[in-house]
Simulated scan of single mutants.
Amino acid sequence: MTSGTKLKTSAMIASFADPGQKTTPAPFGHALVEAARRDDRIVGLTADLGKYTDMHIFAQAFPDRFFQMGMAEQLLFGAAAGMAETGLVPFASTYSVFAARRAYDFICLDIAEPNLNVNVVGGLPGLTTGYGPSHQATEDVAIFRGMPNLTIVDPCDSVDIEQAVPQLAEHPGPTYLRLLRGQVPCVLDEYDYRFELGKAKVLRGGADVVLISSGLMTMRALQAAEQLADHHVDVAVVHTPTIKPFDAETVLAQVDSDRLVLTCENHTVVGGLFETVAGAAVRRGIGTQITPIGLPDEFLAAGALPTLHERYGLSTARIVATVLERL
């Protein structure tokens, strides 16, 4: 940040896209509008964060099906539960931290226990903002993984989001989407990829290393794989957009080998993708060592997003360095 320059809120809630990278504007908002045109049961709600969860796109297209609940996350999800009880399909958006920390009990008992079709949309998951611990949802997956009936989706890019939204609407139970908003990179279109709820996908093969990733870290894993090829290291990348239910068959088929295995996640190493993969491997009797690349078990600093990703090990350069150190 240049001295004397005051960043606006929109600048502080930064995009993780690389300079010059192909992006799609507000893929969630536009996908929800398209889904709502086909299904008149779909409604949208937010807790005073429509602009920052791309829900404003839906609000403009369907003002009579949009509900602004104000700064009241418990009310947001309680109302969404009531709407689902009547047969509607709510998508309720707020920041991930507010859904996971502030409204957990309402999501658990009002939505998950009766297994209602409510789609919780959480903006700023993991380290996607420089605002610090009040807005960095570094432990949201750990919080939500223990909730029965809840499906958890951590999309990589705009392709994932656009294809996931209609599947989430059709899924009969509750879901939690770790939303990437604003100008979202478009990555997976180059890998003959289709999002399937509950399925992991092998995006590229590799004889030396396996990177198992979710969320924006799949983009970074693919970038790291290309750079590691320059070091004559052949890297496979397995994208796991659905964290729960976990596609153990696809992932463990890659883990059970003599290759170096690492997980990559935009989440604390406690309770997220790493422990999901490791737990599944232990239950299957697979003894392969698995190395986590993720956020440390601590409250993180505030600052510029690229600086924070480098500091906490999420940058492509840090992934490359970690792999080379482990080989």
Rank of each mutant, 00 (worst) to 15 (best):
D110K: 09
R65H: 11
A253D: 15
L177R: 02
Y131D: 10
A207Y: 03
V165P: 03
F67Y: 15
M12W: 04
G44E: 01
P133E: 08
G132H: 09
V159T: 15
G87C: 11
A248V: 12
V165E: 00
L262R: 04
D208V: 02
E34L: 12
I161M: 08
E85I: 07
M217A: 07
I111R: 03
D258T: 05
I319E: 03
A207K: 13
G198N: 09
S214C: 13
H239N: 15
N266K: 02
L203Y: 08
E298V: 12
I212N: 00
K244E: 02
L168I: 02
S3I: 13
S257Q: 11
V33W: 05
R41P: 07
T288V: 10
Q223C: 12
V184P: 06
V270S: 14
H135S: 10
E73M: 11
T129Q: 03
D234A: 06
G215Y: 00
A280Q: 05
P155C: 05
T276G: 11
C156M: 06
E170A: 15
F66H: 15
K199D: 00
I290N: 07
P155K: 02
A278W: 12
T263F: 15
L314R: 08
R283I: 10
C186T: 14
C186L: 07
A59S: 13
I243G: 01
E139D: 13
G44A: 09
L295W: 04
F58W: 01
L88K: 15
T276H: 03
K244Q: 13
D40Y: 01
L116A: 07
S3C: 07
D39F: 04
R283F: 09
V238T: 07
G87Y: 04
L109W: 05
F274A: 04
Y95E: 00
F195W: 01
L168Y: 05
F299G: 00
